[in-house]
Design a binder for these strands. Sequence first.
RNA 1: CGGGGUGUAGCUCAGUCUGGUUAGAGUACCUGGUUUGGGACCAGGGGGUCGAAGGUUCGAGUCCUUUCACCCCGACCA
Length: 435
Amino acid sequence: MRRTKAFIPTCKDAPSDAVLASHIFLSRAGFISQVAAGLYSYMPLAKKVIRKIENVIHDEMFKVGAQEVELSFVAPSDLWIQSGRIDKFGKELLRFYDRKEKLFVLGPTHEEMMVDLVRNRVTSYKSLPLHLYQIKTKFRDEVRPRYGLMRGREFIMKDGYSFHSSESDLDREFDALEDTYKKIITRLGLDFRIVEADSGAIGGSGSKEIMVIADSGEDSIAICDKCEYGANIEVYMDMDSVDEDFDATSITDIKEIKGDNNCPFCDGKLSITKGIEVGHIFKLGTTYSKALKAEYLDENGKSQPFIMGTYGMGVSRLVAAIIEQHHDEAGCIWTKETAPYMINIMISNIKDENQVEMGEKLYLQLLDANVEVIIDDRKERFGFKMKDAELIGFPYTVIIGKELSNGVVEIFDRKSKEKTSINAEDVFNKVMELL
RNA sequence: CGGGGUGUAGCUCAGUCUGGUUAGAGUACCUGGUUUGGGACCAGGGGGUCGAAGGUUCGAGUCCUUUCACCCCGACCA
């Protein structure tokens, strides 16, 4: 891509109401544009990042044996009446009538739709387990959308649903998905913790959240400095109001966190930090299959409701979470798996024919090697282009500037902000090593 | 859903209290020129139903009424 042709409207000023780094930088760097409260348009850079995240998710979901589907965004309200959630969800569920005066809703999550898809199609225990997922725009008419992509009303979510014939098989799938989620978030380059969570309004038993560690997170979590243990503080608060017949080990946890901060599972110390919830996995059980009468025949020919799990991951929220965890005062710092362009070739002085020639040659070489590369061929000054590159956050910028007359170019590392001088003829190989 | 705030150029904002030329600045954009290693400079230029509707007045961005939108703080969620 040529910067002169790219639709990347960068700006010195952030929207006046932006508070979070991700909101400020994604707006300034030309990734997103607000349309209305909680509604954003994705511009080319954001679209590329989203696609990269989606690809990682698809890749890992494939490995765990899940199959991709896509359910319609608009759903007949009947299903929501059957499940009883039409009232439970309240005004967050956006509803409207079509021309025939039939009531529809915009899908905020798709348990009902997925159960409806599977029921009467999967009718035997022999077909189980089954795991279907989609990556889809969701709509929740939040009372108070805020923080840019972090809490929009319209957002992109990967949501998966598994169907089983036994609790133990659900447990197995649940653990497998926890592992898959860890792999996904690790590949995206994020520091995270899995925490025990409350199963909330969706219902069900086991529930874990995957939290990206960031100071700006909306959730307070307790994490151990030695082992993987983590817990959502909100859970503890809720547990306080629960009486004595609640799980005793959890009660112990409360004492630990409130007392000497010892980890309940090892000899490490717990500390409180902030996290962004980017994923949530639930053991749903038979809540929806019973309500919607989704059943299969077991080995004895007896009808049984599917035992289900549900697994969500906020894709658009991840875009924001990446920046919350990876930014500095100058702008975004994309990780390798998420960068919209891995390499930015910056021609310092567009009037210098040698610089242009060198830049163009490298550009074509990298394109040919299938590297995601952008060339800054604008008639701007060095400082302007550097600031712009830092704001957008390309992992590496090849600076072709005044040192070229000595046969030298530089590679600027966005994260460390260090410039490394190298011989111009070695730059292609050097860049390929970095990827 | 409570409490508070803001709507003026693409963006960030002044002007409103105390009504009175042709509604401003910075930035961004266009043209020409000078610059070219850290968001340059000079000159010229385009861009506004002052959120909307109604009212008061000789006269409304400014005062009154209504309304809409957006944002911030709290209770809920990927």
